Amino acid sequence: MKHYTNISQQKIEHLLLSNTIADTASILGISKSTLVRRMKEYQIPNPVYIQSAQTRKLRSEALKKAHITDGTLAKRQTRAIREHSICRQGKSNIEFYGIEKAKFISEQQRISHLGYKHTQETKYKFNLQRTGRALSISHRATISRVRKENFANGSLKLSPKAGFGKGGFRKDIGHYVRSSYEHNFALWLLQNGLSYEYEPKTFTLLIDNQLTTFTPDFWVCDYWFEIKNGYNITVESFQAKIKAFKNQYPDERIFLIVGNQKWNQPEAVEETIASQLDLVEVVATLKQVLCVNG
């Protein structure tokens, strides 16, 4: 066997960072099979395949042509996707595929989306697909465990602008909430004898010719209440949603309540409401309705 002593491991690894195996072999002036053999000798793994935008475009065009020539293709694809979805409903990738394959799938998905951004239309479709999706208990436990581990090792960091989060299921109110602010507001409603529904409806909005959704937090006797922290209400995307909601659903009445880190008990909610004149009037009306209805 002919040996190429001038081809070092470092040189091969360096070229493979930005070239395919075939291109690397061409640059080195050797055959592809020779390069693969040297890679095995040096225990160099195959470079990760990243599909180019051009390749994605060609695949998309090929699929379109296939659909035109085969009228049954769409039905067969839909049936296969539906059957697959039924099989893995409520299961995480790890539960369905096993740890090793799930890791491989996750890594391939990450790599394939490098530098790629979804359009607002695609994000809206994803949002609709996830609405009402029920995750298994083990899947939720896995998400919680991974997040705690990532916070502990520093790979996941909480923004200093974030509010007093701590979302989760609360036994004292009997349902999930996204933050302790929402939890204390729910407790305050119950203490005042006001029944409510939590995120019962999602509204479709049109913002800058793009579809999106908005789900208010609480529905209390013909009124919507949205609970936010001091930073979140300043976010441009949220402000756009509130403005669009009021314009596109004029018959719906919504009130924003800004929580703070003093909201460690329901009594603090009373102080915040008392400082907002529009809320004082609404709450008084709600309590009057409660008295009338018993």
Rank of each mutant, 00 (worst) to 15 (best):
K2A: 11
H3G: 02
Q9N: 04
Q9Y: 00
I12H: 00
I12Y: 00
H14P: 00
H14V: 00
S18P: 00
T20H: 03
I21M: 08
A22G: 00
A25G: 00
I30S: 00
T34L: 01
V36H: 03
R38H: 05
K40P: 00
E41Y: 05
Y42E: 04
Y42H: 05
Q43E: 09
Q43C: 02
Q43I: 02
N46L: 12
V48L: 11
V48S: 11
Q51L: 05
S52P: 03
A53E: 11
T55L: 13
L58Y: 10
E61K: 14
K65F: 08
D70C: 04
L73K: 06
A74T: 12
A74H: 10
K75Y: 11
K75H: 11
Q77P: 01
R79K: 14
A80P: 01
I81C: 06
E83Y: 02
E83D: 13
H84L: 11
H84M: 08
I86Y: 07
R88V: 13
Q89N: 15
S92R: 06
S92C: 09
N93F: 12
N93D: 14
I94V: 15
E95K: 07
K101T: 10
K103R: 12
I105E: 12
Q109I: 10
R110Q: 09
R110P: 01
R110F: 10
R110V: 04
I111E: 09
H113M: 13
H113W: 10
Q120D: 09
E121C: 03
K123I: 06
L128M: 11
L128Y: 02
Q129T: 08
R140W: 06
R140L: 15
A141F: 01
A141Y: 01
R145Y: 11
E149P: 08
K157T: 05
K161L: 14
G163V: 02
K166H: 14
G167A: 06
R170N: 08
D172G: 01
V177T: 15
R178D: 06
R178E: 09
S180E: 08
S180D: 06
H183M: 01
N184F: 14
A186C: 13
L189N: 08
L194D: 04
S195Q: 15
P200D: 12
K201R: 14
T204E: 12
D208M: 01
F214S: 08
T215K: 04
D217W: 03
F218K: 10
C221H: 13
Y223S: 06
Y223N: 13
E226P: 04
I227Y: 04
I227G: 07
K228F: 02
G230N: 09
N232I: 01
V235R: 13
V235I: 10
S237I: 03
A244N: 04
P250R: 10
E252M: 12
R253E: 13
F255A: 02
F255L: 09
I257G: 02
G259C: 07
Q261P: 05
Q261Y: 09
N264K: 12
N264M: 08
P266V: 09
E267T: 15
I273T: 07
Q276T: 04
Q276M: 05
L277G: 08
L277C: 10
V283L: 12
N293G: 07
G294L: 11
G294V: 06
